[in-house]
Nucleic acid binder design. Structure first.
Lengths: 347, 347
DNA sequence: CTGAAAGCGCTTACAG
DNA sequence: CTGAAAGCGCTTACAG
């Protein structure tokens, strides 16, 4: 079963490669190929099981019908879900996707962008890490279709993005805690300078302030990115055990794997939710739904994010240069991890 | 910033494209290019930020340095974890990966294999669905490097694979139930004919038999693939409520998302683990570790599977034609979802 | 209605 | 030590 090429078909059919190419690309009508030739070619293609070489086609047309997807970590539930939606959506347009994980590492992200560039992907969907503004700008300058996802750079204005209303998510989280009667509240977040984390915290703090509540310095735990799970758990345990000012009554986690680490910490310390500690996390997760008690969270519209990202990219690849920046709404899923108000109104 | 090509470099450097190509491919020494020319070319490459067009290179050499990864569903935790490991491992050899989800759909799997073929991927890592034996054979015939993962076809003998000792996993699961004092045991599995599921059930039944225990027909629930989560939960609830013969004392789930559906069913019925029902699932999951009580399971060596698959593929791509079939050991993670023996020795 | 030919950007035998 | 040329498998303007 050796490879059969356009030329083989042409020879066999007794026509030129031009003609074969036309019928293959559905231009038979337009180019007024006779019905007879058209049929003959199609039959041969079928019989010899001919498949056009996409590499050659790509080289010639400059289009590879391939998208580059750069995420933080493809094995992370949120990105895996996104990857699946993007795959399905891209498929509708005949595109395949090459994925890469940055591990939130600037150097790696830089390399990946270059790599996808050599490989001539037609467009990029990127979850940017800190410090790759330059690469993004250079992509922009070379007119590469591009959409940032989940995060963006406030300093680089003219880039498509689809993100979520993180600020409002944080705000809602704080209000829910407050409504539930918690007052002494802690935050566990990432130390990285990522906007989306910042915004979640900012929104949260703003709501606290609006209710004349404060968060002490040592009640904001910033974990370095790339910590192991064990590390995160240990840090959270330490915070919970710290004596000064007493234990927080409730904790807001700015992303789901921090929340999951939190659950482990609570388990270790035998802390009961929501009586000993109220819990709220950004990003829903199966674990939160199934946990006993179930964990309330701020949920992101993953499906919509993925679809929108692909749509924006497709439009951009078709030459639509209008800037597309979308901030999708999040929703608060109230479950059982925040006590009823009565409980805590002792202060 | 227009694209710069080999020719541009050659012109600028005042040498032929041949020479440039040689230095780019590290053949300067071998081809005895003068140190002077070598340096000049390298400098220009750097200065003009030249990146070879991989498409052109691929067309010429027949190698795309791209792997095709076909899984059931990239958003599934098990496959996402595998995808990440495969990405990292492939990267070490300079390969990128194109992923696709079959949804366990034969027609889709068939198309995906063809698609990857046109795109000239150098090798395939495939989680096969039922009914694509022909495609696998045709890949084999055209000498495409290939490794099956997670499952394989007993009927197609000469294919590389890396799977897991499913039979033994099932066997251990049953023994653990029996040791824990359970006697009336049910199985929840998938209706698809996939070997790996069959083997898990077979191993389980063999252990039961070895202990002179039986499983009634209606205690084996086979769920169709592609059911929604709600559906699965409902079916499990129905089984638990079925009066004839009484409720099972313990349930073995042959894969983690079935186990997760089971947990929801137990929650709905207010069944307590492990007193009301013992639970054991194939495939570990964060949820099992964090669940209260934590859920025992048969765990697969995901890291090793991913690495081995890539290594086998790399060897095959280097012309190593020795058949590689690996069955990796699984391990039983005993947690808190099976009661102590004393509890159930009432029968 | 159809074909000869150029060209996409590389690599690599071959020649000197 | 270096270069001219063929060729990978397509597409497409041009010509007839």
């Amino acid at each position: 079963m050796k490879k059969v090429s356009l030329k083989d078909i042409a020879q066999e059919a007794g026509v030129s490669t031009t003609t074969v190419s036309f019928v293959l690309n559905g231009k038979a009508r337009e180019k007024r190929i006779s019905e007879q030739v058209n049929r003959r070619v199609l039959e041969l293609v079928e019989r010899l099981n001919y498949k056009p070489n996409q590499l050659a086609r790509g080289l010639r047309t400059g289009k590879t019908k391939t998208l580059g997807l750069i995420v933080e970590d493809i094995s992370n539930h949120f990105f895996a879900a996104l990857a699946r939606i993007i795959e399905d959506e891209a498929d509708k347009y005949g595109y395949k996707v090459l994925y890469c994980s940055t591990e939130n590492n600037t150097a790696k992200a830089h390399e990946l962008i270059e790599m996808l560039h050599y490989r001539q992907v037609d467009g990029y969907i990127i979850t940017p890490t800190d410090g790759i503004e330059k690469d993004i700008e250079s992509l922009l300058q070379s007119k590469r279709p591009l959409v940032l996802m989940d995060r963006y750079f406030p300093a680089v204005a003219a880039v498509n993005h689809v993100v979520v209303d993180n600020y409002h998510g944080g705000y809602m989280a704080a209000e829910h805690f407050i409504d539930s009667g918690y007052r002494k509240i802690a935050i566990v977040t990432l130390a990285s300078g990522q906007v989306q984390m910042k915004q979640r915290v900012d929104g949260f703090l703003a709501a606290m302030q609006a209710h004349d509540l404060q968060i002490a310095r040592d009640m904001i735990l910033e974990l370095p990115f790339g910590h192991t799970r064990e590390n995160a758990v240990a840090e959270i345990v330490r915070m919970l055990q710290s004596k000064k000012g007493g234990r927080p009554e409730a904790i807001f986690f700015t992303t789901n794997y921090l929340g999951i680490a939190g659950l482990e910490a609570f388990k270790q310390l035998d802390l009961r939710i929501p009586d000993d500690v109220g819990v709220l996390s950004f990003d829903d997760h199966d674990i939160f739904r199934l946990h006993n008690p179930s964990i309330s969270c701020v949920s992101q519209p993953v499906m919509e994010m993925g679809k929108k990202a692909v749509h924006i990219l497709m439009a951009a690849m078709q030459g639509n240069t209008a800037l597309q920046q979308h901030e999708l709404p999040v929703s608060l899923l109230v479950r059982d991890s925040c006590a009823s108000a009565a409980h805590h109104f002792v202060a």
